[in-house]
Amino acid sequence: MKFADFILPQAVRAEVKATDKLDVIREMAESLRDAGGIKNDEFEGIFKAIVKREELGSTGIGRGIAVPHTKHVSVEKLVGTVAVSHEGVDFDSLDREKVYLFFLIVSPLDHPSEHLRALEHITRQLKDDVFCKFLKQAKTQDDILTLLKEADDNVFGR
């Protein structure tokens, strides 16, 4: 799986305005809705499901990265978006560090392998310090999209 398979380019945000956890999730879910990734009338349900998942345990997995997600009956294919915060957001992460890079994904029910492969691709790329550093420094949507494209072309990662 590649970023191009599930990241909606128009939903990518280089500078999230939100400064707390719930607002970041809302802002990213809104960008996914505005880009047509999730339906308007399903928005609140999806937002609440992502928040509920966070309550079971933060998806802040350390090293300034979070992967908020949920499964939802209304999506037919896996969709996702990327956001960068230059200030960092407290996300109750495992290592208690602020989060700068967010990958939000919404997957259909009963496709656990796709969900797993998306997480695998995201984390495989983020293991590369150079990719992480460049992504944190991204200032525009285009900067991020270029980095995602390069990652898909195996410029980074192992």
Binding site: G62, R63, P112, E120, R124
Partner: peptide, 11 residues
């Protein structure tokens, strides 16, 4: 490392 565990993609 959760990052490394997820990057295994173990199904």
């Amino acid at each position: 490392s959760v990052l490394e565990l997820l990057s295994l993609g173990a199904a």
